[in-house]
Each structure stands twice: as structure tokens, then as C-alpha cells.
Nucleic acid binder design. Structure first.
Lengths: 218, 218
DNA sequence: CGCAGAATTGATCAAATGGTCAAGCCGCAT
DNA sequence: ATGCGGCTTGACCATTTGATCAATTCTGCG
């Protein structure tokens, strides 16, 4: 399967029959994302998620047989969104433009989906017990392609020589940091990405520094 | 209290009487770091930590009255190590040298203490329920000083104009990423910082890119 | 309208787990 | 050696919590 294909849409353990079921499933996933991101898999309670979704625990378990099924579903949906900006990284654009755009997109994701970012981060930090197989296939495929894109830019002299993987890690790290460590950043600056000026300041700093760092000449 | 002072040495809920007690407490803290970092606070079981420390659960609870006490102790010890490299950032050095040294130190920490890095990261990602007060005092003090250092470098024309907070965040993000997301990095590259060549490659990439990005001229 | 299947939930269960305790062990100072 | 006080643990308890189920209500369709 090509790396541009979307992830298989979560094993629908149960076939959705009605629009009400669909709406409920969606509400549950939203609630689960919020609670899992705040408390982790083990720390989250099913009845807590149910309450956040506005239904009884028993009803939630009617839609997702187990807590783990629910966790898996939320994670898969999250990873799919997480990958999107990287899919868009365009080999044919000017490297500076493409990378600048990528940074902006990732930072936007950190602003709009900080919970998803944190959930994903926590899963990885715990060794990716659930996502490891997907990372090794879909993510690895996609990253391999983009590594080649970067290599080509370097060969063509349009980018300074940097090991492509490390460049990608730098881009991920700097942009995700604003979502994952928002609590720390809020403590130190009093602001977060939801503040437009702060967002622009962060984007500016990252883009300026990294582009100056990897574009040829000065 | 000055920001250079060490953190208050964990409220010693219990006074240590013998060298055997001291050794046990140390073994427990090591085991707890490992287990908490892998499974999070909620996911870790006390008997699991006790087993990793080579003693009974009841005995562990003799040294730390509650799971949360133990968690707090591990975290405090961790934060203290985490802060050390930043304390060393020297205002009187050449900015390039100082920042290069800082990156190397932080990356070294990611190599030697990946579990501590992940534990700290998970605590922050969950909103720093335990550390928030310490962050707001000790960390904030220290960061404020270093911000002034960076501002002075910029005023003196020895550093390109970058909002100092964002520079600090970039340094933290890029270096910690190798510990916090080691599972992902291992999946994508097959290596981690324990590989000397890979460590050097990462250090090189980060130092080169960021220094070129923030040092004046090109 | 009537009914088949979906949706919903209160009650309940079983397992997991943090913490307690009484009883015994052992290191060490005298 | 001996006894005080810290060290150690098996057994136990109370609570939490994921999951089940029977019973009831709702929904849409023929």
C-alpha cells in the first residue's frame, strides 16, 4: 500500500447502522481524545469519558466493546491527522517555501489539535505499544519518500547538507513542542498558540532560524 | 531563593537512619523512574516497582507512604538533573560556543537519562499536576535569567534577533526529542542515541542548523 | 399502527490494586 | 551477647473500575 493512502478506517468492530449511532460514535471519540490526552490510557476512566460524551458508561461500551478498542480508534484517527502535513510536503516547490509551509502547517496543527498531539506523544513515549506496527509501515513509507525529497534538494544544491532524518526530527520537535509542552510554555510566557500574536512569533522564530540554518549561503 | 540553588531535597517524609535504608531508597527511586517512565503514574503498579527494586510491596510502602509520594520524589530528583545544563549556560562565553555546549549537554542527558526525560515530559503533558508550582518558581527564575543573557547577546550584535523564549524552546525541543520519541526514531532509523555515530550525527545536525540560524552573518 | 432491531441504562460482578497491620527478622551500638 | 529500633513481609481489607446483562425505551420502516 502506498504511503499516500489514508490509514485503514479503524476496524469498525461494530457496523454503524443509524445516523444516531454515527453521531454517538463521533461524540465518544471526541470525549475520549480529551480525556485520554489529559490522563493517559491507564489514568482515564471509562465512565469519565462516557460522562464527557453525555451518555452512560454502559452505552459507551455498546459502541466500543473495550477501553482498549476505544483507545485504538482514537489513536488511529489521530495519527491520520498527524500525518497529513507531511503528505503535503511538496518535492517540486522551492525548498524554502515548502519547509516554511510545512512548519506553518505543523504549528497550526499544534494550535488546533493540541490534545491529539499530546495523545500521540504519550503513546510514542510509552514505546508505541499500539501504534508501533502502523509507524513501521505507513509512517516509515512516508518518511522514506520525504527523505528522498530532501536528499534531492541537497544534491541540487538547493539545501545545505543535513542528514534528512535529523532535519525532519527537528521540524517535528520544534513545532510539536508548543502543543506537547503547552503547560510549561504557559508557565514561562503566560501565553500559548491560541494567542495569535504568540503563534506568529513562534512561527517566525522557527521558520527564520531553521531556514537560515538549512538554506544555502546565508 | 536564587535560581542557582538546588531544589529542596525531597521532603524526607521519613528520616533515613541506616545505610541500608539509604540504599533501599535509592534502589526504589531508580526502579520507580523506570516503571513510571514506561507506564505513567496511573499505569504503574506499586508491586511492579517493588519487584523491580527487589523487595516486597509492603516494604516499599515503608519507605514511601504512598504511590504519589514516591512519584513526587522521583519527579523532583528528575527536574533537578533536567535543570543542570541550563544552569551551566554561560553568559560570558561566546554565544556560539555556549549554545553549542548547551546542545551537547542536553543531548547527552537525552542519551544517559532517556527515562527521566520521558517521565518529565509526561508530567508536563498532563498539565504538570505535581511540578507546576516548582516550574513557576525555580524554572521560571532560571529561564528569566537566561532570557536576559540571550537578550544581551542580541543587543551586542553577537546573536541574530530571536525572541529568547522561542530559542530556548527550540533547544529543548530538538534535544529532548531524541529521548522522548526514541521509539519513533528507532522505528524510522533503526538507531538511537546510544549509538555513538548516531549521537554525533544528531548533535552535528542540530548544532550546525541552529547555530547557523541564530549566529549573525552566515 | 406494529414490530424488528437499535439504543440506553441501572444493577451487578469480578479482578485489580493501593494501602494497612501484626508479627517476626536483623543490624548495630553498647 | 543482647536488646533496641529500624527493616521486612505475608495476609488482609476497601475501593476502584472495566465489563456484562437483562430489561426497557426509542426509531424507522413496511
Amino acid at each position: 500500500m502506498s504511503s499516500t493512502a489514508r490509514l485503514a478506517p479503524v476496524p469498525p468492530a461494530r457496523r454503524l447502522k443509524t445516523r444516531i449511532g454515527e453521531a454517538n460514535e463521533s461524540r465518544i471519540l471526541d470525549a475520549a481524545l480529551s480525556v485520554f490526552a489529559r490522563l493517559g490510557f491507564a489514568g482515564a476512566r471509562v465512565d469519565q469519558i462516557a460522562e464527557a460524551a453525555g451518555m452512560s458508561k454502559a452505552n459507551l461500551l455498546y459502541y466500543f466493546r473495550t477501553k482498549e478498542d476505544l483507545y485504538r480508534a482514537v489513536l488511529t484517527r489521530t495519527l491520520d491527522m498527524w500525518l497529513e502535513p507531511l503528505r503535503e510536503l511538496d518535492a517540486d516547490s522551492d525548498p524554502g517555501t515548502a519547509l516554511g509551509h510545512y512548519i506553518a502547517r505543523k504549528l497550526e496543527y499544534s494550535r488546533l489539535q493540541p490534545e491529539a498531539s499530546r495523545l500521540f506523544a504519550m503513546e510514542i513515549m510509552q514505546g508505541a505499544p499500539v501504534l508501533s506496527c502502523v509507524l513501521a509501515t505507513d509512517l516509515a513509507d512516508l518518511v522514506e519518500r520525504k527523505v528522498r525529497t530532501i536528499e534531492r534538494w541537497i544534491e541540487d544544491g538547493r539545501l545545505a547538507p543535513v542528514e534528512p532524518h535529523h532535519l525532519i526530527f527537528m521540524l517535528w520537535a520544534t513545532t510539536q513542542h508548543y502543543a506537547d509542552f503547552a503547560a510549561q510554555i504557559r508557565t514561562l510566557t503566560g501565553k500559548d498558540l491560541s494567542d495569535d500574536a504568540f503563534f506568529e512569533e513562534a512561527r517566525q522564530a522557527i521558520v527564520t532560524t531553521i531556514l537560515k540554518g538549512v538554506l544555502p549561503r546565508g
